[in-house]
Amino acid sequence: MQQELHALLDKARAEFSATKIRADFEATKARYVGPNGSLTAFMKQMGGLPKEQKPVVGKLINETKTALAALLAAALRTIEAGELAAQLGPAIDPTLPSPDAPAGTSHPLTLVREEMCRILAKAGFSVVEGPEAETEFYCFDALNTPADHPARNEQDTFYFPADARFGNISKKVPGEKYLLRTHTSSVQIRTMLKGQPPIRIVSPGRVYRRDTTDATHSANFHQLECLYVDKNVTVRDLKALLDYIFASLLGKDTKTRFRPHYFGYTEPSFEVDLSAKHLPKVNKEWIEIGGCGMVDPTVFDAVGYDSKVWTGYAFGMGLERLAMLLYGIDDIRYFYQNDLRFLRQFA
């Protein structure tokens, strides 16, 4: 019997080393330890043995069983290792570049707009939107721009024919013409007409001027305007906002200065200069960055706010200009060409 058991083990060793896949393994395994397996047959003989032989034979069978179990386990390990290896793809060369598209990018104008909005959000401004196709009332009349003001003339502003209809842009004055807004100030008017003060909003958006396109002019560009309406708003508050914005954007020691100026919708009005030493490619001490002022009482009258009670300030700037200054870009047209070598520089 001992020899038979040795022969069984030898045979098993040969058979299991030849099994490569799990199905063969299971079939082979069954031939030994299955209900009709050869080792199982030996175990069944145990019952018929004389009592005194039982311990000796039992020991032999157990030893064989243990050896066989080890064989099974080893064979299974080999098969599992093979299975895992089969899951692997071809060899890699970690130095090859990935063909997948690199992370996408936001446009520099979006980045600058969002940065400004984040800065202003901390000062309590929420972002509003308004239509780009506007009417004369929202773009001019309500902003104290009289009918014969040069800014309204057809040389500077894009108009639509008198019979043009915009289904979702309301007219305030019957018969007024539609146009492409020349500034985002029209959004201030729409916001004020919609609700009551206090108001603290920022309106970024696309605006249009009838201009020759060159390095610094573009038929459409983007502006960002802030409006704050409350009681007792002062010139000093306005200056504080501008100082805060540009210190946030360019560092704490950035300075701004106000030069008195004229805008129809603010009084007093100022142009804002920025100390330029933090900016690339600027070799001037001060650089103009935007316009601002205290909301003119006539504007409050136009939207039905009591100008004796409410005061406010407004600030506006060009986003392209800001982006050009921040990044050192010298031609506004690059923003609209979208050369990927340009776009990828800012992400």
């Binding site: 997948d100 990018t105 936001s106 780009e132 492409l180 038929a219 459409n220 609209y336």
Partner: peptide, 14 residues
């Protein structure tokens, strides 16, 4: 879209 590998562009309205 930027997260899915798209590059944002800005084109003229007119």
């Amino acid at each position: 879209l930027a997260g899915q590998g798209f590059n944002e562009c800005v084109n003229y309205t007119l």
